[in-house]
Design a protein around this nucleic acid. Structure first.
Length: 764
DNA sequence: GTACGTTCATTTTTT
DNA sequence: ATGAACGTAC
């Protein structure tokens, strides 16, 4: 039995798998098989050491990783065995702990979980209450400051005490009030989930003891990405048995922006001086060529604690390709062409190919190019499914039905769909509720029943008759949903809500026939998710659903489809691997991102991001950048990424520049509205090219073929015009028997000119 | 209070 | 380029 668990592992891997007791730090390079090690270690503990998996806790980076771990354990040990294992992200685990032991917090059992958007809405309320100008103090920034403070386990009082600047003082005041409103709404934000768990453990040693005893063995993946709270949690949980097994790679630390601290690796060695340190340096994933390129970039990293010596027995493989596109459209066009070429060679399937980029915005041009080629693709992330407006609105109704104190959700739906309750009324309502010291919902209840208990009889109701009527009818709606919650299961409740509101008609009224339908389809998809909860007792369906919706990221639901090309951000790509990888947008300002240019640490993180991207590739790596790029509708000449300069020339196959392939053609023919932006981003895939797209392919081919003879002007060329003076050609294309030249004239703008009329003079 | 037009800010990256 | 936020007109 043990043999099969250790089979095919190298010495270091076997060593890691077989550690029984004591703290262990595994420093694992990319592609070193660390997931396999984690899985087999769990299997080993179970089958060789005889540990009940009920006593094992595995912290993973995504819920998807947890699910995959379970599947692989089942595959190794037999179906169902992994069910006993506790596995999940810090956030889901903490939510579970809190849910179970919430009695210790002086709060009701059920709490709402506020995501970033909810937090920001609440922050707006905070600023309003404190009479602060949200122009001067952007809710986003305040939210971010508070979030980082929480990640450092700094509470509002401490923040107030150690605040130095005036801005800190403002944040401190917001922090205090923000927490107050959160508690009133019976809500915890993302950060609170972790912070409150640490506090729970601090204040109630018995509770901590319970978990310490239960989780005799603890494993944590992606340790380099833990922040301070997470570090504390691990420390608390592991302090009894000290069987903490962490796996990480400082070179792949790319989450400093959310508080991740690489130093946690060093702290680990301080906290557990007896820790075994195991290095996994052999890479099984990539070809030597790819690894060389990745190494040459990461070796320039400013300071690394421990130089790893990554090596592989894999073949050298094909050279890494470097190519410049004229602009982002051509860059994408080149990607699509090469992808199409690889696919037609028969060596690869769409699922073997991934395109990676720094920012989500970069996926647009890419998407158009892929559609233009009729390639199937999926965009991971982007606008996340659960962040779509229609989904959030639908969820808000469910959340209020579950927890009427949830003021943020209530305010979201107060006037959606429009029912004559405007800003004035909402503000008034908020003030009134504050005065009464109750959640808005309770205030509304009093409006409904003025004779009721707590309301002093002489309290004036601050609304006129019409407004009052609107508010009361809203209340009727909410109360009917609250009632429905007890009569129906989750799916039934959704049906009631969507039918009563006439959700579909609202969406169509607001967004028009086509987009409205798309949005409604998203809502239907949400409704379909309810089916997953059908086996649960009715009363726990809604809370469980709401919790999972808040904590499950889109990446968790990525289906690894074999027939779509994956488009994904570098961050999300961490931990994944593909035979073919395109890294696009390798330019100064993008990678490294402009926001990181002034900070050395941030710059280093960008470098690691590059490294992460490059090491996702197994067989073929393409690196692209564009000569010019349009950002915010403004076009600038760009410079290739400084990281490219760190790669020795001989490691690259530098593709010659192509003339400007007139990608304008593609955009012209691509009917933008046919691109479905509203569908669930990870689920939706472009299936087959529309007729229009097919026709376009034909035209495009013939155009490209004729172009060299026919086009007299090309991009980048300098020209002189009688009226506008000197300018530079942006693009040129054939129109019937003439040529339309787009020229940028400095100070005079971009003009479209017909070659036969404009009398353009070429300048060399 | 809403409907429309205009301005303006917006893009890191995520649980 | 796109969408949210603000202003003016009903």
């Amino acid at each position: 039995m043990t043999v099969s668990i250790l089979e095919g592992l190298n010495t270091a891997q076997q060593q890691a798998v077989q550690v029984v007791d004591g703290p262990t730090l595994v420093l694992a390079g990319p592609g070193s098989g660390k997931t396999g090690v984690l899985v087999r270690r769990v299997a080993f503990l179970s089958d060789h050491v005889g540990i009940d998996l009920h006593n094992v806790l595995a912290v993973t980076f995504t819920n998807k990783a947890a699910r995959e771990m379970r599947e692989r354990i089942d595959a190794l040990l037999g179906a169902g065995r992994a069910a006993a294992l506790t596995a999940g992200t810090f956030h889901s685990l903490c939510a579970r702990f809190l849910r179970r032991d919430i009695v210790h917090l002086s709060r009701e059992r059920d709490f709402a979980i506020y995501d970033t958007d909810d937090q920001e809405r609440l922050m707006k309320r905070v600023l309003k209450d404190l009479n602060l100008d949200d122009k001067k103090y952007p809710p986003r920034a305040i939210r971010a400051s508070i979030s980082s403070a929480k990640n450092e386990l700094i509470d509002a009082n401490q923040y107030a005490q150690q605040g130095r600047t005036y801005y800190d003082e403002i944040v401190a005041r917001c922090f205090v009030h923000y927490q107050k409103l959160l508690r009133e709404a019976n809500a915890l934000d993302f950060d609170d989930l972790l912070v409150e768990t640490v506090r729970l453990f601090e204040q109630h040693p018995a509770v901590l003891e319970k978990y310490q005893t239960r989780y005799r063995y603890i494993l944590a993946d992606e340790y380099q990405d833990t922040n301070h709270v997470q570090y504390m949690l691990l420390k608390q949980l592991a302090s009894k048995y000290r069987n903490l097994f962490v796996v990480g790679d400082e070179d792949q630390s790319v989450y400093a922006f959310r508080g991740a601290d690489i130093r946690n690796i060093r702290y680990f060695e301080n906290d557990y001086p007896e820790a075994k340190v195991i290095l996994l340096e052999q890479n099984y994933r990539s070809t030597q060529s790819i690894l060389d390129v990745a190494q040459s970039v990461i070796n320039q990293s400013a300071k690394r604690m421990r130089d790893k010596n990554l090596w592989t027995e894999n073949d050298r493989g094909t050279l890494v390709v470097l190519q410049e596109g004229y602009d982002q459209d051509e860059e994408s066009y080149l990607v699509a062409s090469e992808a199409a070429r690889l696919l037609s060679s028969g060596d690869y399937q769409p699922g073997d190919i991934a395109v990676m980029y720094r920012t989500n915005a970069q996926s647009r041009a890419l998407e158009e190019a892929l559609i233009g080629r009729g390639l199937r693709y999926q965009i991971v992330g982007g606008t996340r499914f659960y962040e779509r407006k229609e989904i959030k609105d639908a969820l808000a109704y469910l959340r209020v039905a579950h927890n009427p104190a949830d003021n943020v959700s209530l305010s979201r739906i107060l006037n959606w769909p429009g029912r004559g309750i405007g800003q004035r009324t909402e503000d008034e309502l908020g003030r009134w509720a504050t005065k009464l010291g109750v959640p808005v919902y309770r205030a509304l209840q009093k409006l409904k029943n003025p004779g009721g208990e707590e309301l002093p009889p002489d309290t004036p109701i601050p609304f006129n008759a019409r407004t009052q009527k609107a508010l009361l009818s809203f209340m009727g709606l909410i109360d009917s949903f609250i009632a429905a919650r007890h009569e129906h299961d989750l799916g039934g409740l959704m049906d009631v809500i969507f039918r009563t509101l006439e959700f579909e008609s609202i969406l169509i009224r607001e967004h028009g026939e086509e987009e409205g339908r798309d949005r409604w389809n998203n809502v239907v998809e949400l409704r379909n998710v309810a089916a997953n909860y059908i086996h649960m007792p009715q009363e726990s369906q809604l809370p469980t659903f709401l919790e999972e919706v808040a904590l499950v990221s889109d990446l968790d639901s990525v289906r690894r489809e074999q027939d779509t090309i994956t488009c994904i951000t570098l961050h999300q790509a961490k931990g994944l691997e593909y035979p073919v990888v395109f890294l696009i947008g390798l330019e100064e300002g993008l990678l490294p991102h402009s926001r990181s240019l002034d900070h050395m640490d941030a710059l280093d993180e960008e470098r690691r991001l590059f490294y992460v991207g490059a090491t996702r590739a197994k067989e073929r790596l393409y690196m692209l950048y564009a000569f010019r790029r349009t950002v915010f509708g403004r076009t600038n000449v760009s410079q290739s990424s400084r990281f490219l300069a760190d790669i020795p020339k001989e490691l690259l196959h530098h593709m010659p520049k192509r003339g400007y392939t007139d990608t304008q053609q593609t955009s012209m023919f691509t009917n933008r509205s046919s691109v479905n932006w509203t569908g669930s981003s990870t689920r939706q895939t472009h299936t087959e090219p529309s007729n229009a797209t097919r026709g376009q392919e034909k035209q495009r081919t013939s155009l490209t073929a004729n172009q060299p003879q026919a086009v007299a002007f090309f991009a980048g060329q300098k020209v002189n015009h009688a009226m506008f003076g000197e300018g530079m050609v942006v693009s040129s294309k054939l129109i019937e028997n003439d040529e339309e030249v787009t020229v940028a004239f400095p100070g005079k703008g971009v003009k479209k000119l017909l070659a036969s009329f404009a009398n353009l003079e070429r300048i060399e």
